[in-house]
């Protein structure tokens, strides 16, 4: 028997798949109209996902009991939410072509996970763990957005520098808009991630009696956090802008992805939720 929650989740997945296909098609046929439609489809998918998560929260009597599927769904939900929110502010519909595949990947990964499998072992559950997770996810989602904008900036910059704006250049958002998104992503993402990490450390200190867990994930995350902090410092204090910021964000994001994969497959960690 398929549950209502599962049906809503599948609907969200289908919407997101269509939106991703629409965005990519829009990029290949160079028509902005398709990207606009895709944004609406993504918004519907986002609503379904919100319903699904809300339903799960009510059913499982609290956020602490979330399963792995919901954990991954929250990633997708946060990225989609931030991206859609941004669409009210700027006309950067085509950014979806870079963002939607990430959302889709998270949802597909989520679909493969059990909804009932507890994300956090029962003995670790509590508000501190929850806030650690939610803040870290939101921070990382904002970095995804900043890096996607950075990648687009690099493409647009290269087109303009080579004096060949062409159809693609016309389709991509303006450099200023992309730089602003990159800036906002870092500006909001970094403090959220910082708070998330403090939450984790506080939990470790209280429960395990040790602030520093010597966990591979923690070490990698700290490294990435330091680099992001460095980037934000360069941006705010030194005045890095435009192409330098964009290329650094992309490079750091690649490192971030690599670390996530290496940790998942090569090391044992207390963060092995997926």
């Amino acid at each position: 028997m398929i549950s209502v929650g599962m049906i809503i989740f599948v609907l969200a997945l289908v919407c997101c798949a269509f939106a991703t296909a629409g965005y990519l098609l829009s990029l290949s046929v160079k028509k902005i109209g398709l990207a606009k439609v895709s944004t609406w489809i993504l918004a519907i998918g986002f609503l379904f996902l919100s319903l699904n998560l809300l339903g799960a929260a009510i059913q499982s009597a609290g956020w602490d009991n979330f399963g792995s599927r919901h954990f991954l769904s929250i990633y997708a939900w946060a990225i989609a939410g931030i991206y859609l929110g941004l669409q009210f502010k700027t006309k950067t519909r085509l950014l979806g072509a870079f963002i939607a595949p990430f959302i889709l990947l998270f949802l597909i990964a989520a679909a493969g996970q059990g909804a009932d499998k507890n994300l956090v072992p029962p003995q670790w559950q509590g508000w501190l763990t929850t806030s650690h997770l939610v803040l870290a996810i939101a921070g990382e989602s904002l970095f995804v957005l900043a890096s996607a904008a950075g990648a687009m900036f690099m493409i647009q910059n290269s087109l303009l520098k080579h004096k060949k704006p062409g159809k693609l250049g016309r389709l991509l958002p303006s450099l200023s808009d992309l730089d602003r998104i990159n800036h906002l992503g870092l500006l909001w993402g970094f403090p959220l991630l910082t708070l998330g990490m403090i939450g984790g450390a506080a939990y470790a200190a209280f429960v395990w009696g040790n602030l520093w867990a010597y966990d591979s994930k923690v070490i990698w995350s700290l490294a990435v956090w330091v680099i992001y902090g460095f980037l934000l410092h360069q941006r705010l204090a030194i005045g890095w802008k435009g192409i330098r910021m964009a290329s650094w964000s992309c490079a750091v994001f690649a490192l971030f992805l690599l670390s996530a994969l290496v940790i998942r497959f090569c090391f044992s960690t207390v963060h092995n939720f997926i």
């Binding site: 303009l160 704006p165 016309r170 958002p173 303006s174 450099l175």
Partner: peptide, 20 residues
């Protein structure tokens, strides 16, 4: 009618691609 066909309009279009 999509793309500018005069030099001055092309310059404006480029400025918009840079500054939004």
């Amino acid at each position: 009618a999509a793309n500018p066909v005069s030099v001055s309009f092309a310059a404006v279009e480029l400025a918009k691609k840079i500054f939004g």
